[in-house]
Design a binder for these strands. Structure first.
Length: 225
DNA sequence: TACCAGGAGAAAA
DNA sequence: TTTTCTCATGGT
């Protein structure tokens, strides 16, 4: 049975540091955390590029523009009407709280409750912001994480978010930079680094993987050679 | 053509 | 309380 540390060490040895989150400003991370909900990052990048081109990658600008125009910019990320509302809700909370510098004054638990109280912000989105914007020691559990743990026989895959997060937290040093790197490495693996499919002779987790199934981004789960 | 992707919330059972 | 449905574009 693999430990959280063993999986991390194996992925880190294979891929090295990932230098996440892929963004240049705090607000770009915040926007990306909403836009990536149930969406491939490639499409999120298109939507972020649209926001940048329209000078909308700033809280005041997002609140000033019409929701229809905001939604139009977000179109490539899918669910654009939903995400426009969610991004505005979160941005309004950010402004109300005095920006990221205001959030830095909150305890992790208080701010997590605050973020979860924003309509459209769930556990994963809140934890992305806490970890990647505010450097807080929380573990981000996403669909990749869930799938990879299941294929390593370390989870069934239907556990609650908090149960899976706790599995990582109890097995790792309480260091945000480790959680940051770990999530990035899981995304690197899960989003398709384990190619070519369906066979995965170069999968870095092959030796840890009792199921021998592909961890990559698609639905293909062929047996390992 | 069909299926799925770094969720979240509302509605239905 | 748990399960199902809805939102939607783009890649394979």
């Amino acid at each position: 049975m693999s430990s959280p540390q063993a999986v991390f060490d194996t992925l880190y040895a294979a891929y090295g540091p990932q230098h996440w989150w892929p963004a240049t400003t705090d607000y770009e991370i915040i926007a990306g955390a909403v836009l990536t909900q149930n969406t491939a990052w490639r499409n999120v990048e298109r939507a972020l590029a649209n926001l940048r081109a329209r000078d909308l990658l700033a809280p005041a600008a997002v609140m000033a523009v019409s929701e229809a125009e905001l939604a139009d910019a977000l179109r490539p990320a899918g669910y654009y009407n939903v995400k426009a509302g969610r991004l505005r809700n979160l941005t309004a909370a950010l402004i109300e709280d005095g920006g990221v510098s205001g959030w830095r004054q909150w305890s992790t638990a208080s701010l997590r409750r605050r973020l979860l109280g924003v309509r459209g912000v769930g556990a994963e989105t809140a934890d992305c912001i806490l970890l990647y914007v505010l450097d807080r020691p929380v573990f981000v559990v996403d669909a990749y994480t869930r799938r990879i743990l299941a294929r390593l026989n370390l989870a069934r895959g239907d556990e609650s978010y908090d149960v899976l997060a706790h599995w990582f937290l109890q097995g790792l040093p309480a260091q945000p930079d480790v959680y940051n790197e770990y999530h990035a490495l899981l995304v690197r693996l899960g989003s398709g680094a384990c190619r070519p499919r369906p066979r995965c002779p170069v999968c870095p987790l092959a030796d840890l993987c009792p199921t021998g199934r592909c961890h990559g981004g698609g639905v293909v789960v062929a047996e390992r050679q």
